[in-house]
Amino acid sequence: MWDALSAALRLVLRLDGDVLAIAGLSLRVSLLAVACGTLVGVPLGALLAISRMPGRGVLVAVLNGLMGLPAVVVGLVVYLLLSRSGPLGAAGLLFTPTAMVIAQTILVTPLIAALTRQVVEDADRELGEQLRSMRLGRWRRARALAFDARFSLAVVLLAAFGRAVSEVGAVLVVGGNVAGHTRTMTTAISLETQKGDLPLALALGLVLIGIVLAVNAAASLLRHHAMRVYG
């Protein structure tokens, strides 16, 4: 364990080029997936929160259930879609970073939508009456509530990022763990474990945890700043 810790420190301090590239790819893929998931998931969740339609309960239950989508199944489905023999094969996206972004987007969108639904629904309980009395349309109300709940939504996005950056099943299947091209932190950790280089695997794991902590710390600083400025 101490070996791993000192190896991790050395990896970071030496600014090992390979490790930096791998960490950079992990960050880019997962942040992009969360960005895409946000564009779809937040409006979807917010609208669902304030809509009153038959079958809504079922929809909410399904969405909540999809938070537990197994990463490897998502990977397999995306693999079959993007494979040259699959329906989207002509695009030639399999074993590229783009394929990994697609898979992770599918993975995090339900998570973002489901949590947004809950957060906005809570905000609606406090402010809904007021907004309805202002005769705002559904879309405007959803937007106002989402904005009101923006700090909670920030935590939702952090959770989604955590899910994306830590999963290995989907990126391994659709990315192929190609050295220098689609190797991410998690697939590299899995590879080093397979090679029996457990200290290096653990060291990479510690680097990954460090990255996740750094992203969360940055988000938290941003949030404090925003709270001071906008109250």
Binding site: L25, R28, L39, P97
Partner: peptide
């Protein structure tokens, strides 16, 4: 944020 993410996206630099 989106622009930054896209720019930073793997520029398929192969």
């Amino acid at each position: 944020a989106c622009a930054a993410a896209l720019l930073a996206a793997p520029a398929a630099a192969e």
